[in-house]
Design a protein around this nucleic acid. Sequence first.
DNA 1: TTGTAAGCGTTATCAT
DNA 2: ATGATAACGCTTACAA
Lengths: 339, 339
Amino acid sequence: MQKEVTIYDIARLLQLSPATVSRALNDHPGISSQTKDIIHSKANEMGYRSNRFASNLRRQRTNTIGVIVPRLDSYFMSTVLAGMEKVANEANFNLIISQSLESFRKEIANAKTMFDSRVDGLLVSLASDTENLDHFHTFFRKNIPMILFDRVMPQKNCTNIVIDNVRAGYDATAHLIAQGRRRIMHVTGNLRRNVYADRLQGYRQALADYGLPTDETLLQTTDLTRQDGLDAADYIAGLPSTPDGLFVASDFCAVSCIGALQQKGFAVPDDVAVVGFNNDPVSLVIQPNLTTVHYPGQEMGEIAAQSLINHLNGLLRINTTNTILLNYELIVRESSRKR
Amino acid sequence: MQKEVTIYDIARLLQLSPATVSRALNDHPGISSQTKDIIHSKANEMGYRSNRFASNLRRQRTNTIGVIVPRLDSYFMSTVLAGMEKVANEANFNLIISQSLESFRKEIANAKTMFDSRVDGLLVSLASDTENLDHFHTFFRKNIPMILFDRVMPQKNCTNIVIDNVRAGYDATAHLIAQGRRRIMHVTGNLRRNVYADRLQGYRQALADYGLPTDETLLQTTDLTRQDGLDAADYIAGLPSTPDGLFVASDFCAVSCIGALQQKGFAVPDDVAVVGFNNDPVSLVIQPNLTTVHYPGQEMGEIAAQSLINHLNGLLRINTTNTILLNYELIVRESSRKR
DNA sequence: TTGTAAGCGTTATCAT
DNA sequence: ATGATAACGCTTACAA
């Protein structure tokens, strides 16, 4: 490990004080732009890079943001992270990313690691079985800001970034109704999570608004895995009266369900019209292509990161803005179209 | 931000010197286990957490590993990262993860960020169009160790962790031949990447070994996207003599190709038997389920991280062990089975 | 506009 | 087995 260039080295060569060099490098207002130029070019020439640890130690800030997500392996999440990364890089922040793998226990462990890493702030999307936010109390106590996105939970002084899942669920269901469907089944995820509870609420509201009866046998609460999709198909096949519409809260599950239904001789959309959620690339793999709800991951990531950084820089107090709603879009494809 | 507990606070309360406290906390041999116990329990009681920045500054090490991957949104990669995370956490290392989105330019930018973050080491899987490793020269010059996994490139003093893609490609092709297929097409990715070049080599070798002619019109080099899968189906449909076997170097592309083929009236596997690669969950969505090659992501991640950490701790010089080969498994499903 | 100097919390060296 | 002390590289009152 050869020696690193420090501000002292630059100062010595330029016959200046380390303080001036530090200030110039940080674009301090009270330094003449002449000296700034000289210092910057010398720093470049010498291959100087700031020592974040010394800086962090001194300023008691880490310029690091912790990110906890349920899983990394969805197209949606990877675009969210790309957005966060972009914003964080530009603002000179580091990202520490970890996945809870949908487990409350692991999320608790992740939170602890983040705390020990002294992140300046937290961006979190909750695991499916997370029961409360107690594991973040250490952060709240220290006033370390946290923003929840997508899988959120109301919490004082904590911004939520989401789409309007109630309306999206409503739109998905209303779309099926508009295609002439009357018996619409809904396959959802853990109802502790807002995304699923809200979509369900929208589904119920749509049924009510269009005067359709609510049939509790047409509601299946699952983990939205591939197997759950297969099970749903079995369940449908076993019903005395087959539903003619199906709204599944996740594309992957919807797609595996469609496959199984087709195997059993059901035609999609003619016998059962299907709508998914998320606009995962897998929605384009199945024949017929899956109708779904798209929402902008990259944008969600950018907004989450930017809001947090603004807050950290004192530009915007996030406790005032408490919920940010992003737009979504119902994408109609063949799996639900009347014909 | 309330005040943090430091080793000075502990030292004062225990009438000891900070040095002793530091040593005890780091499990230094020359401290009596009695005092260690006292110090540890006091530290716990006071809610002490070590300041990594002070420690890093002093020790000139960051205990941080940089990870650069092409994309986060595959099942394979998320298991790799889960493995890395597990090992890193246990060894008290942090992970900084970034995605190149398959772009050489972005990979170069990522490398720069990692360098400025002063990571102790690097775990990298290359973007599809990366031409060389020049952007890592800063690391090599400083003797910062780097391990390449999956998408690798030979490099002095740099361990590669891979599966035997030549053999895997061979096995996939030989399997199709064993099912009676004679005209086998291969859809591959950017041949700059070992994974694709090697699988192609295995494909060629298998054809040669079984006395089948090589037909260059049956080789398609693509980006393995969904669209490339559709295009491949078009291409197949336009051929004067349809291939009866198809080996695609990625499941997602294979699956979208199967869908398109079926739309065009081809039966899978009867007209065209198909084998994919990676054992992505999407391989189970399509009907018939896709034959594919599985390899252990979690294990690859664990081994990569562990090797790097061992090296950093001086336990194992990775420049001696230069390539680590992991096992893979051909998973035969309906998309290729004789019937 | 620039300089001086103290201090952030550790750890390593040398001494006891 | 434990203590005193310097140093890691930076930022920021305070001074000039």
